[in-house]
Design a protein around this nucleic acid. Structure first.
Lengths: 216, 216, 216, 216
DNA sequence: CGCTAACCGAGACGGTACGTCACGTCTTCAG
DNA sequence: CTGAAGACGTGACGTACCGTCTCGGTTAGCG
């Protein structure tokens, strides 16, 4: 989950017989991420401070920097945990599943932690390739997995055809992912309007019937 | 364009026949916004500082603060100019128009100034109602205007029916706006993959055929 | 008294028409030096902290660094003021004058500020040419002036002959200065034994009768 | 030489027949002191760190702290070795002996290790009684021994009378010690001028003829 | 010859201070 | 009254050492 960049790779050198020195506290990692989320809720991204997080987690500032390169990396890991809670329900139809996951995703984005953090780390990521990769692996790829899972389930149900060309299949999945995630994020954070059941229904209808046309 | 919160309101006092004392330099405003954009390109949002902008614009820091409340407000105004360049082309069909505007919007988001600034000010806006309003009026509403304009044009062409219920019409416009803007922004800044002609074509097909189904 | 290394030299460039910008607070300088002395008394050199001095002086840390390059420079200036209090008495005879100044110098070195600071800055000075120069001009040269003044007075009284060769005169003054200052400092700070009237009498006798022999 | 404060006292418990367990490495002690001197030469007192010394000596930081309470104690022991090299020559006359030992002492103080360390530990000692004692026993008393030894030798030669009152004798030895050590240290480290043969001759003349007068 | 106590290396830990940077405000002088 | 210049209080930054601790793994010397 959390990368620890300064930790020597265990398998890097056969000479190394095992982890030497005092091992890192696992509790600290947990307390820090918890404290980070709490600070995000109270202060928001721009007022959040490494020192403040350290204080809340009852940990020295140096301990934070030993594990994370900076605020952005820390926050990515802290909110990544929340995105793990997202699951694809199985309500019997693709339409119901999509509507439900849209609502769940929106609910996640309404939470103050994610609300303030997501756009901020993406903004930082526009100038930091490493951070962008971290966001991708910690957050984005997991959501994309939901799209793949949903499609597979719909195909098993016979709601969607199996695609012949794997390249096309991947391209379509990416497109659908950007449309769903983009629309929900944009409505929630930019337009700042609520994603309610009606909107989810409308959006899902648009998406699914549009989807059908891609196959002609 | 730029709010001048400390400027004495002209109508505040009937005795005042006009602004007294030395008037503010109009060149300064322009130089500051230009300098802000240059700094965004070179440094990105998070490394951009008010002092640096002042130096580049050959202006005192005080002058900046007299005109803008802070970094976020300044940057919103600076990038808003760029969004004004976005125009809806008239290529004869809704499909062509949408594809074109999608590509133009994506090209705008590829520019380093907008890339780094847009997400950042939105992130700030999640905790600052006033800023959110400023973003809306300076940036978002203009883009939304393109959607309305495009619909009107398509209706005139007979590609889309006139809608009876104005509330439904507004809801649909909002939905379409969030879908288009969200998808392009997400692909560009989050997925960090290019919006090329092929993607634009795919996306437009999905959108327009989905759109048709909303009317059943 | 206190060098302000970042202050632009007034006469450096004819273009400069006058001191521009807000001038530095003179009260701050004074409060800082006072606070430094107080901190030296309470904490000693090694526990003295720039941040603590700033707090005591009710001044920002940055204000300290704007005026002094570091702890050593600050302390040199702070204790230099104390060395200005040293004066050569006129008790009618060279012997009485020397005894008296030895006792006054020892009393100065018994004060906790000077006690803890003097050796420390000298130690730092062994690796820092600029600091050594600062110590010399702020502290050492003033004491050396006492030697010259004392000799001149003794010569006026007829207690000491006028020296023909100015080079020899300077060499002798230096020697006497090192012997007096060195002996008092060494007894006070290294041997850590008191310089009382008896010791001063003994030492003065040794010095003055030795001095006579230099002239043969 | 090196105090080992945490070593269980041999006589503390009658049951203990001897030191049990693995004994401390004697090589480590030596390597550490050597490393300390090397670090003093390269970095000087204030930049010298325990961690750096440990690294140079290829020893864990813990090993240092098991043997010395801190930087000051370590450095005192490290430079004390150098002061042991000081010896009183026997050149046949008191004058020649004093001149020679003055030059040797000055040469010792020109070495970068001693130059930077001596004043620093004395400065620390002004606020630390235990450290002051350690300096006295490890460094100062050995030098003072040279004075006693030189006087005894001069008395044996008939150059100096035997003193009747042992208290007076001790007082005089202390005075001479402070004068010699003080003058040399002050010229070397404060005035920062060289102690050459001419200065040594001048100083010795002053001292010895002054010394004669103490006996009247 | 095997126990076992004390050692050793590595390195994480909670702290404290560092010196720098940017913030947004202020005070001065010049136009 | 504006504008440039720059000092000011504030507060976070990321780093460096401090001295302590917790590990796994030696290494004597006694039984």
């Amino acid at each position: 989950m959390s990368k620890q960049p300064t930790r020597p790779d265990v398998a890097a050198d056969a000479v190394r017989t095992g982890p030497r020195g005092r091992p890192r506290s696992a509790e600290a990692d947990c307390a820090i991420l918890e404290a980070t989320r709490a600070a995000l809720v109270e202060l928001g991204w721009s007022k959040l401070t490494m020192g403040d997080v350290a204080t809340r987690a009852k940990v020295a500032k140096t301990t934070l920097y030993r594990r994370w390169a900076g605020k952005s990396e820390l926050v990515v890991d802290a909110v990544a945990d929340l995105f793990d809670e997202l699951e694809l329900p199985d309500l019997g139809s693709l339409k119901a599943d999509v509507e439900c996951v849209v609502l769940r995703f929106a609910a996640l984005l309404e939470r103050p932690e994610t609300r303030t953090a997501l756009m901020a780390v993406v903004a930082e990521g526009t100038r930091d390739e490493a951070l962008r990769g971290r966001i991708r692996s910690a957050i984005v790829d997991r959501q994309k997995g939901l799209v793949l899972q949903g499609r597979a389930r719909a195909q098993a149900r016979g709601e969607l055809p199996y695609e012949d060309d794997p390249a096309t299949a991947a391209r379509n999945a990416d497109l659908i992912f950007d449309v769903i995630a983009g629309a929900v994020v944009h409505r929630t954070l930019v337009s700042a309007e609520p994603v309610d059941a009606a909107w989810a229904r409308c959006f899902t209808r648009l998406l699914l019937s549009g989807l059908a046309s891609l196959r002609n």
